[in-house]
Amino acid sequence: MAVPKIWRKIPEYYNLIGRQCPECKELYFPVRDVCKKCGCLEMTDYKFEGKGQIVTFTITRTPISDPEGENTEIPARDVPYAVAVIKLEEGPMLTAEIVDCNFEDIEIGKNVEVVFRKIMEHGAKGVIQYGYKFRLC
């Protein structure tokens, strides 16, 4: 991801700032410029609290291999790692890593809360991308 794109996504990644339609009050995460329900174009920022429930999850034990080290976008995570679809309390769903727990403890329906973590390093010389992951609570 190019530096300007990382920079543009900081509000979403750091603080779960999505959008709300001022007309029909529908909430969106990630950011949308047009309301899917009523077509409104004047969407406003909306900060989500960062609490939700696991809808479904998967544990990746064999990620895509990179034997030649060609990929310079290095995710800040160990293998295996857990990724879940999370339904935020306010409604929208997002995909995020579940960290700081034994994988046996992850279950559909469990409550999670947001944490601030390193997401990706763009090589040893590039920028560090920070953002949201979740943990059981």
Binding site: V99, V115, R117, K118, I128, Y130, K133
Partner: peptide, 9 residues
């Protein structure tokens, strides 16, 4: 620290 934790986090 976790693998994704540093001074900033």
């Amino acid at each position: 620290p976790g693998i994704d934790e540093d001074t900033a986090t």
